[in-house]
Nucleic acid binder design. Structure first.
Lengths: 208, 208
DNA sequence: AGGCTAATGACAGCCACTGACAATTGACAA
DNA sequence: TTGTCAATTGTCAGTGGCTGTCATTAGCCT
């Protein structure tokens, strides 16, 4: 981030993300055109597409930052932890430092509102899920290396990640639906869901 | 399917699906335009969009049939089975009768090739995942009713379905990657993955 | 200062998708 | 059978996402 050129580019990109999220959260994703965003930032439509491969990418730009942050947190977990425990701790711990990462680009409050839009916009939700799958593959690699198993023959890394991903998506959905956007609420949900995982899968649900 | 009108409509729709899948699997999804499909079936582009909300929907039309079939199979499972076992049995059993359902519209071989295309086309994979989430919600409702629990307060139905969904997506991916498109291979993978679920989540992976 | 290169703007054009209206075609009763 | 009604389709025009191309601008570096 040395030269003037680089700083200018960063400013333009951040302005595009901020403006896009602002418009998406106020008017809705579908009712906001790329021209709207470009005009508000005072660049050409063509420039928008030089920064983002598509409208989706601008909408999910923050997402990429949080994901990268989570992946790094997993990488830093002590090796003695069991795989699922390392993932669990990464979520609980990662959210502490995530706040500042987000705030460096957009207000956290805007980020959270955008999350709602994503959940209720089919094409965005779809793109989000696809990205989740990609992350899961990355995490599976990390787990396999950590535990010294072969990803091609041992299904456990991908299995663990798939389950964890399912739980996280469920948690996200419930968290954003409950309306309690606090960190503690998020943490409590993750812990609660993972605790109930074992019983839900093996035991009978009926008490009689 | 009584009147001539209805039969004609069904034929047009089937022809569109068949042609779309044929083109998608030979030229690729992105390199096939809606005009290509419409022209091959000899209808106007506008008519295509009267049958399908978009290109995606035509590509995933078969998917919807298999999903509906799976949901019905789950509904028919004996009530004494534990939830996860009911899902497992539905997959193992459902595939037997699925063959004929598919073949009534397109050759199964074409359906399987389309599956490959879906896995390797980002926008299709995304749409597929989004649909999976919708199905999971449906199944969660069925499980909750089956077991007599409240979906709003008890997380176990959605938790179970999320885990099962994760395992199934993993299975799909590996199955289509292995190149062994037999039913038995599919069944073996499902059984194997579900068997390893418990150990992978709770135990240590290292043998020392 | 002046040459070099990265960044941008200004078209033109493709494709997915939609609304509106006219033309056609099957359904059904007189 | 024929005429009327309603469903289906075709045509046309237009919007919005996205890309290639080329000229212009603006920061960089000697």
């Amino acid at each position: 981030m040395e030269t003037l050129r680089e700083r200018k580019k960063q400013r333009t990109r951040d302005a595009l993300v901020r403006t896009a999220l602002e418009l998406f959260t106020t008017q809705g994703y579908d009712r906001t055109t790329v021209d709207d965003i470009a005009e508000a930032v005072d660049v050409s439509q063509r420039t928008f597409f030089r920064y983002f491969a598509g409208k989706e990418e601008a909408a999910l730009a923050m997402e990429d930052m949080t994901v990268a942050h989570f992946v790094e947190t997993v990488r830093g977990r002590p090796p003695h932890e069991a795989p699922m425990e390392a993932l669990r701790q990464s979520v609980l711990e990662g959210w502490d430092t995530l706040h500042d990462v987000i705030e460096s680009v957009v207000p956290v409050e805007l980020y959270l509102r955008m999350y709602q839009v994503m959940e209720s916009t089919p094409v965005l939700l779809a793109a989000h899920l696809r990205k989740s799958v990609e992350i899961e593959e990355t995490i599976a690699h990390i787990l396999a290396e950590r535990e010294g198993v072969d990803l091609d023959t041992d299904p456990r890394p991908r299995l663990t990640v798939a389950v964890f991903g399912g739980v996280m998506r469920l948690t996200e959905r419930q968290w954003s639906a409950d309306g309690d956007y606090s960190l503690d609420a998020m943490r409590a949900l993750v812990v609660s869901h993972l605790e109930q995982l074992g019983p839900a899968l093996s035991e009978s649900w009926r008490t009689h």
